[in-house]
Design a protein around this nucleic acid. Structure first.
Length: 832
RNA sequence: GCCCCGGUAUCCCAACCGGUAGAGGAAGCGGUCUCAAACACCGUCCAGUGUGGGUUCGAAUCCCACCCGGGGCACCA
């Protein structure tokens, strides 16, 4: 760094020769003081009302960056605000320290993943301390500590006992680069969310959490969260859960069990002219005729060659194979052919559909390719899909539909169709979800081992709590190289164990858990982080939880947030907590960009946090991030001005040197105009912080600083008690954003530390009342006159005054007044 | 294709329930201070709210359609 703008004040500022604003000196000074005072250690026994503020804990890859700086700055406004408002605040921090980057680094450097992990944690810890966030560091832990993952494993066994964790064989997402399976949520546009590699499918036996058990509850919960969660996140979760209402319909097949399909349009059953089953489902192999068996197998080879990315292209031509059998349409009695295709998904619904080509474009495309019959059963008034090959999906009049004929309402048609199906037991109304169970096992090393033992006699046995944690075997370097099966399998001594039930020889499960499992319950561990006897103290969880405000990035909108909701509901059902939702309100912060783009090495537009902190100081960087925009908007570093922030902080700080009255002076004798500004700003600030409009809160603080400056220079002067009151208010408000500057101001104002723990002032309501307000007089909706009136003027008085006004009379120009709308004291609208 | 969110000065952003479009900042311009500059301080310019309709005495705000940007879901039957 070449310049020190923060020391420039030294060369001038004649009025304060004794002091200069020196960011780095302030940072060094106050860190020590704050540590001594233990300002932010949450007291479980405190009689004060409790608040739980949480921000997503980081993964320890390298040092903190701009993104961290932003979340922490925003989050800290709320946490510090709650302290000022007299709450006992739990604001903990730790590390989400299992995960692949450490493992990959270990392979590269021939070391243990812990080396990389714990070194980075120490670096980040130091940066956090310097950044001045009000964390309670006494509660710090890492998810890779055995003391923590012991309880991750224990919770797994509890879910297992409850039937919420299970193993099954099915086609799963496989990342060929990371050499591990992935959850559905970790596949984005057919690619691995972590490394970007194209995901393929493999048939494997894997562990799952039964997230679908709570599908409806997840959805219902969103309604309650809607007022306090961003609509973006609510929307993303709703889409992800993907509820759809419809019916299961049974189709008879000669020589086979009836085949059930799921449809959202049971009303179009009369137009179902063929059936399609997922080519890769077991059902297809079961159904296929001997003559067509080879054809199906050949087709399957084709299908498997296509990647998920190919499959995502919805405009891909339809393909499929005739299974050589027929099914009976349950309402028309017709024999309809059964086909297999990859456009039907094996793991959604029943893996089989009834095809209604006239009213579903996909079915129609398929019918067109294979020359299958199309029959219109709903006349929507549009052109006939049998001719146009454009499916019609809207409301219309039912035709060729037996009992539905003549009906003209879709939802009524669906209702009646379900009734009919249920009456002769050929189908039932049902609800289907897009949400799948959470695949949690991973074939990697640096995670919590799945605490299950496989015994020839007793089968799967959960490791009992006395034998937990199942510690990771000591592996490093080349032992960790991905080879498609879990590295733990290579630790043969570790794998061989005894069955907890029968004592006979048995094998440990060699998979580890997805690191999202670790972070699905960490907020509970913080309430009793050092408890060696249980995962967490349920009473304390009740006392502190649920989390009053959770702050994080919206890249976790479905992943982490949904998983945490799952754990919360599961643990509630296990009787461990009493709440239904983990995060009462959620604030998702935008990203920090540069020049309109995401910062990246390849674009060369990265902004290094350390450099910014060195150049402008912690406070100026924090202020910049908070002031730049509403928290949820992206910030473009090219659009903001840390130098401007620094200038403002110096300006505010300078005020504290210009206050010449003594601490504790009677402020009620102070300059009324300034006191009113102060009162207004304090009042607004609480509303603004509570509604997360931190940028506006900062603007209000700037306004107050401007007002004080003016009062000192050309108003009541620095000795006026109102100037002290206002400056102290500035210090308090700034303590939420720029804690070092605020603390320094507080000290210069003659107070003992710390301004972070002062009590938010009670505003004298009388100061909020204006002496006079400007009333606007509109004629035909246009502003024609202004009146200075008393705020408690009556409607009739105001009306008389307005009509008497010269400018208004001129505007009326003798026209007859038809109506006068009066909103005292601010507005009169005259209609002519 | 379906679903959410947004579009206000040169830029980042304010505007409670529909009631004077501007709080704050950045950039610009002018001035005071200075030998000069930087800093500081003072002042000042700049939009009628994406487009088109509608409701209303009155619309940035509510309704409809469209355009643009961001996000979610997507061969999910």
């Amino acid at each position: 760094m070449s310049e020190h703008p923060q020391t420039d004040a030294a060369t001038t500022a004649p009025e304060s020769t004794e002091a200069t604003y020196d960011a780095s000196a302030m940072e060094a000074k106050w860190r020590g003081v704050w540590d001594r005072l233990e300002l932010f250690v949450a007291d479980d026994e405190s009689p004060r009302e409790k608040k739980y503020a949480l921000t997503m804990f980081p993964y320890p890859s390298g040092d903190l960056h701009m993104g961290h700086a932003e979340v922490m700055a925003l989050h800290d406004v709320i946490a510090r605000y709650w302290w000022l408002r007299g709450y006992e605040v739990l604001n903990p921090m730790g590390w989400d320290s299992f995960g692949l980057p450490a493992e990959n680094a270990a392979i590269r450097n021939d070391e243990h993943p812990a080396t990389y992990t714990y070194a980075n944690i120490e670096t980040q810890y130091e940066s956090f301390r310097r950044y001045g966030v009000s964390f309670d560091w006494t509660r710090r832990f890492n998810t890779s500590d055995p003391e923590y993952y012991k309880w991750t494993q224990w919770l797994f066994t509890q879910l297992y006992a409850k039937g919420l964790a299970y193993r099954k064989n099915s086609p799963v997402n496989w990342c060929p680069v990371d050499q591990t399976v992935l959850a559905n949520e970790q596949v984005v546009d057919g690619a691995c969310e972590r490394c970007g590699a194209e995901v393929t499918k493999r048939e494997l036996t894997q562990w799952y959490f039964r997230t679908t058990a709570y599908a409806q509850e997840f959805l219902d919960g969103l309604d309650d969260l809607a007022p306090t969660w961003p609509s973006k996140v609510i929307n993303a979760q709703r889409n992800w859960i993907g509820r759809s209402e419809g019916a299961h319909v049974s189709f008879d097949i000669a020589g086979h069990e009836p085949v059930k399909v799921f449809t959202t349009r049971p009303d179009t059953l009369w137009g179902a002219t063929f059936m399609v089953v997922a080519a890769d489902a077991k059902l297809a192999a079961d159904l296929v005729s001997d003559e067509q068996r080879q054809a199906l197998e050949d087709y399957l080879v084709e299908v498997r060659k296509a990647s998920d990315i190919d499959r995502l292209a919805t405009d891909r031509p339809k393909s499929g194979v005739d299974l050589g059998i027929t099914a009976t349409n349950p309402v028309t009695g017709e024999q309809i052919p059964v086909w297999a295709s990859d456009y039907v998904l094996a793991d959604y619904g029943t893996g089989a559909i009834m095809a209604v080509p006239a009213h579903d474009q996909r079915d129609l495309d398929f019918a067109k390719v294979f020359g299958l019959p199309v029959r219109r059963v709903v006349d929507t008034g549009e052109e006939n899909p049998e001719e146009t090959y454009v499916a019609t999906t809207g409301n219309g009049v039912y035709v060729n539909s037996g009992p539905l004929d003549g009906l003209a309402d879709k939802s009524e048609g669906i209702r009646r169709a379900i009734e009919l199906l249920e009456a002769d037991e050929r189908g039932t109304g049902t609800v289907n979800f897009r949400l799948r169970d959470w695949l949690l096992s991973r074939q990697r090393y640096w995670g919590a081992p799945i605490p299950i033992v496989h015994c020839a006699v007793d089968g799967e046995v959960a490791v009992p709590v006395e034998q937990l944690p199942v510690l990771l075997p000591e592996l490093k370097g080349a032992d960790l190289k991905p080879k498609g099966t879990s590295p733990l399998g290579g630790a043969t001594d570790w794998v061989s164990t005894t069955c907890p039930t029968c004592g006979g020889p048995a094998q440990r499960d060699t998979d580890t858990m997805d690191t999202f499992v670790d972070s699905s319950w960490y907020f509970l561990r913080y309430v009793s982080p050092h408890d060696a006897t249980r995962a967490f103290d349920s009473e304390l969880a009740d006392a502190w939880g649920p989390i009053d405000l959770y702050v994080g990035g919206d890249e976790h909108a479905v992943l982490h947030l949904l998983y945490a909701r799952f754990f919360t509901k599961a643990l509630r059902d296990l009787g461990l907590i009493t709440w239904d939702e983990p995060f009462t309100s959620y604030l998702s912060q935008g990203k920090v960009l540069n020049q309109g783009r995401k910062m990246s090495k390849s674009l060369g537009n990265g902004v290094n946090l350390g450099d910014q902190l060195a150049e402008f100081g912690v406070d100026a960087v924090r202020l910049t991030l908070v002031f730049a925009s509403p928290p949820e908007d992206n910030i473009d570093w090219a659009d903001v001005s840390p130098a401007g922030s620094l200038r403002f902080l110096q300006r505010a700080w300078r005020l504290s040197g210009d206050v010449t009255s003594e601490p504790g002076v009677d402020v009620t004798t102070g300059d009324l105009a300034l006191r009113k500004v102060t009162a207004r700003v304090i009042t607004d600030a609480s509303t603004l912080v509570e509604s997360h409009r931190f940028n506006v809160m900062v603007a209000r603080t700037m306004e107050l600083v401007n007002a004080v400056r003016k009062a000192i220079d050309s108003g009541c002067g620095g000795a006026d008690p109102a100037v002290r009151e206002a400056t102290e208010t500035v210090a308090m408000l700034l303590s939420m954003v720029a804690p070092y500057t605020a603390e320094e101001m507080w000290e210069r104002l003659g107070h003992q530390p710390s301004v972070a723990r002062v009590t938010w002032p009670v505003v004298d309501q009388a100061l909020l009342v204006e002496d006079s307000v400007t009333c606007v007089v509109q004629v035909k909706g246009k502003v024609k006159g202004r009146l200075e009136v008393s705020p408690d003027i009556s409607d009739s008085e105001l009306e008389a005054l307005a009509l008497a006004d010269d400018a208004v009379q001129r505007a009326l120009d003798g026209q007859t007044v038809r109506k006068v709308i009066v909103r005292a004291p601010k507005l009169v609208s005259i209609v002519v």
